[in-house]
């Protein structure tokens, strides 16, 4: 397998005092992310949690470079992030596979876009195998199940050998069985490649099961409420006492205000 040893030492993300405001249709400023600072070490698995619509996704998209911070800076290995780049792979809840391309072409997209396809042709099959989609190379996305589509989306991001993998609720739309299977697979891939992972999730159990750090964020405009270290021994048992206690702890930090949340439903920024 393609093992990128160097990735173990690179992939540090420094978020320095980042704020992000949006301007609504009336020209008013809507603050969404407020003064967030985080230092994410190489190889960490950070889960971002917070109320719906609080601005987690905005923060993630700012790390991806798809959005520019209104103030503050984000550095990847000491280099300021000014735009999107292949060293930061992104997987959304919706797989967004190019539906006019078969799986092989979808996975090869990044290589072709950067004109390095000729040198790395063989990798396409390797990454299709990595996510367990061998035999579906010629299939079109609409022929695949939701879980398989998400696997393909992971292969398409991973083939660019990102130092940082940014995940926006990647398992949110999947059924429970598929979700558990893909969580396990993601852990294996993370251990093998050692990249940094930042993942937005609404599922406390998922966060406790996967993360090394859980960042709990506040209502919009979002700030970091608390950073919890999740150093439960692996493999983690979802039914163990420590696991359940960790869940409780996060829940208490989240401090759900039911009415505040219901006001925000479906109000995900951008």
């Amino acid at each position: 397998m393609v093992k990128d040893k160097a990735a173990n030492k690179t992939g540090r993300i420094e978020i320095v005092n980042v704020s992000k405001n949006f301007i609504n249709q009336y020209g008013e400023i809507v603050p969404t992310v407020a003064n967030v600072s985080l230092d994410i070490q190489p190889g960490e698995f950070v889960c971002l949690m917070g109320p719906s619509g609080c601005g987690k996704t905005t923060l993630l998209r700012t790390i991806a470079g798809l959005l520019q911070p209104s103030s503050g800076e984000i550095f990847l290995d000491g280099k300021k992030i000014t735009g999107p780049g292949p060293e930061r792979g992104l997987v959304f809840q919706d797989p967004e596979l190019f539906q006019w391309m078969d799986i092989e072409h979808n996975v090869a997209f990044g290589l072709k876009a950067r004109k390095i396809y000729q040198e790395r042709k063989e990798d396409v099959q390797k990454y299709i195998d990595l996510v367990g989609l061998r035999g579906f190379e010629k299939a079109y996305p609409h022929h695949l199940s939701g879980g398989m589509k998400q696997r393909a989306a992971f292969a398409r991001a991973l083939i660019n050998q990102p130092k940082v993998l940014l995940l926006d609720e990647p398992f949110g739309a999947l059924d429970a069985f598929t979700r558990t299977a893909l969580q396990e697979r993601l852990l294996e891939i993370w251990r093998e490649f050692g990249m940094t992972i930042v993942m937005v999730t609404h599922d406390i159990e998922e966060a406790v099961f996967l993360g090394t750090k859980i960042v709990v964020m506040s209502q919009r405009p979002t700030t970091v409420k608390q950073v919890l270290d999740d150093d439960l021994p692996r493999p983690r048992d979802r039914n163990s006492l420590e696991f359940v206690e960790m869940r409780k702890k996060i829940l208490s930090v989240l401090d759900f205000d039911i009415f505040a949340i219901s006001n925000q439903v479906g109000d995900e920024p951008c």
Binding site: P84, F92, E96, F109, R114
Partner: peptide
């Protein structure tokens, strides 16, 4: 065209 396609493409270095 879905905006998500362009987001994906941009993170993969497509001009």
């Amino acid at each position: 065209v879905s905006k998500g396609y362009y987001d994906v493409a941009r993170t993969m270095g497509a001009s």
